[in-house]
Design a protein around this nucleic acid. Structure first.
Lengths: 160, 160
DNA sequence: TATCTGAGTTTGACATTTGAACTTACCTTA
DNA sequence: TAAGGTAAGTTCAAATGTCAAACTCAGATA
């Protein structure tokens, strides 16, 4: 039972200035994350997304529209044989850059949810070595997660 | 306009076997992410969380209960001066390990959402060097994100 | 006895989500 | 030319979730 000496009543950074909070707004949704997962694997079509990730039709249509507006996905025309043109959805640069986030989630779940590991490793395209996600300094030194600190810039909390 | 030659109609890994999908289930919620953010900064009390992250009372109560059940947070008694004991919420090991995920989100938002950088750097506790999140091999070599590949283990897709 | 405080719960209006059925636009086959 | 097929949605009504505001609860204080 602690006392109040170590009470912290607010984060040092305003929600509006916090990238993490903005990301939570844009990515803090189960369906969006699952759609990004499918997109990384190359699944692009409405019905494929719907069937593979078990997303209800209406929900999928909503999310795709919103994610295109948010610049995570882009719609592209495709044509299957002689069939008429339809739309498929692929990652934009912004969407593709969420890879580290999704992989951080995979590493976390594999290590902390004690339900067995995802049958997938990320490997180096050059050497084939199995990769981990880690904090690294400017000279490439790896720093353990227990050994990192936040440094907050001055004037971070907006004056009212 | 592409043709159907490169169609991928399903991910190579079943949803049930996918750590990323499990993480999406547990972390794919804006409020949970914001609560974790506050928890990392050391904000622990109900009203502080509510006020600092702008979470509606009922929603916060729901999320705290669920996150304790999911093992992300733990409730602990505290006593403020002579006041009666109340509950505050702190990170468990599982919750604390989401740091890489939240920081990956921060790095992503700062780089890709063109709305200004979070006024915070992660630094090495030893050297003070500014850190980045990167893929590293077993010998500590950094591998660029464009240069990584997934290697999927055999028998990944459950036979029906 | 009445008041205060932090941590919830309740309420009732509103919004979102869902599975199932329907629609749309075009292609194919009879 | 009519009937049927197909992928990508839209629409519907019921169930669920969200929200602000009001209320409750348990003790401490006046």
């Amino acid at each position: 039972m602690s006392n109040s000496d170590n009470r912290i009543s607010a984060a040092p950074i305003d929600l509006d200035d916090c990238g993490m909070a903005k990301a939570a707004e844009m990515l803090g949704d189960k369906w969006r994350l699952l759609i990004l997962r499918e997109a990384f694997y190359g699944v692009k079509r409405f019905d494929d997304l719907k069937n593979d990730a078990n997303i209800p039709r209406a929900t999928l249509a909503n999310r795709l529209k919103a994610m295109v507006k948010d610049g995570l996905l882009e719609g592209m025309e495709y044509r299957d044989g002689t069939a008429r043109a339809r739309t498929e959805y692929g990652l934009t640069a912004r969407g593709r850059a969420t890879a580290k986030i999704l992989l951080a989630m995979m590493y976390w779940a594999d290590e902390y949810l004690d339900e067995g590991k995802t049958p997938l490793d990320m490997i180096s395209g050059e050497t084939g070595a199995i990769l981990d996600l880690a904090f690294v300094g400017p000279d490439g030194q790896v720093v353990a997660a227990e050994n990192i600190l936040p440094r907050i810039h001055s004037n971070s909390r907006r004056d009212k």
